[in-house]
Design a protein around this nucleic acid. Sequence first.
DNA 1: TTTTAATTGATATTGAGTATCAATAAGGAA
DNA 2: TTCCTTATTGATACTCAATATCAATTAAAA
Lengths: 151, 151
Amino acid sequence: MTTDSAQKIEINLINALEDRGLRKTSARAAVTQRIEAAGDAFTAEQLCRELPEVGRATVYRTIRHLVDAGALCKLPILDGAPMYSVARVEHHHHTICSRCGAVGEFRHSTVERVMRSLEKEIDGDIVGHRMEIFITCNQCLADNAKGDSHA
Amino acid sequence: MTTDSAQKIEINLINALEDRGLRKTSARAAVTQRIEAAGDAFTAEQLCRELPEVGRATVYRTIRHLVDAGALCKLPILDGAPMYSVARVEHHHHTICSRCGAVGEFRHSTVERVMRSLEKEIDGDIVGHRMEIFITCNQCLADNAKGDSHA
DNA sequence: TTTTAATTGATATTGAGTATCAATAAGGAA
DNA sequence: TTCCTTATTGATACTCAATATCAATTAAAA
């Protein structure tokens, strides 16, 4: 803590669990460290494969706790298991590369403004929303330009 | 066809299948009729239960064909099986009541405009998007006002 | 320490959805 | 109409994700 730490959003998942009154165990430490280290979005099964020393049930339970704590976002993937990504930005939306599956985050004030304007048109009370943008990420665009059809 | 039929969007699911070169069978007729009659969004398993005379595999296959044909929308539901609803509006988004699960459709030009403005901010090519609005529908609001906590 | 309750993880189970494949039905040709 | 080819069906077995069970273990408060 050399400088004021209020700026940086702490991505300390194990703390998020402790804050909920959960115990600090080696299994939970292994799961949260792995998630923090990877950085990318992941599926529950991927995590299980990467952490064979942690029981499958525990991996799933820990993920659920992190989602409940708001520390992980659960993204619904059509035709596939949901993916999880660390919530870095307070309220945000996701970009998902339809080629490689890379997940990004963004927030855009206009989106929120649109939501408010929609309230008039919609039959009922708005209680939330979800939005995903499907992209071809720059990496995939570059790969495509190089390799093209004959890999 | 008393008047010009161009106005009304035909919701003829069996025709959508025929247009794709698929045969008109009694099983497909049963599935599509049921979907049209219900009107509401549904899950694959619900349809299977309502149509015990049609094999489970056939129900799933028919749904898939209808989605491929663009006649059904497949909505990802977190913590649950995807729901399907008949696509009545060309490009649109969905409202989902978080109490009763009722699904509605809407389109809003501002949403599309926002999408275009996002292109500058996003790192890659936008190839699509999805948006769901979670609501408490008027029906549920009314039920709540009446019954309240002591059903 | 000791104690108590939370946690773990091997295993069984559930549920959604798909693959298989012999029997059947659709629909064009003769 | 009848025949023939091919699509379709549906019972069954299977895969995969995820949860329930529960005895053994471990965290952390006393």
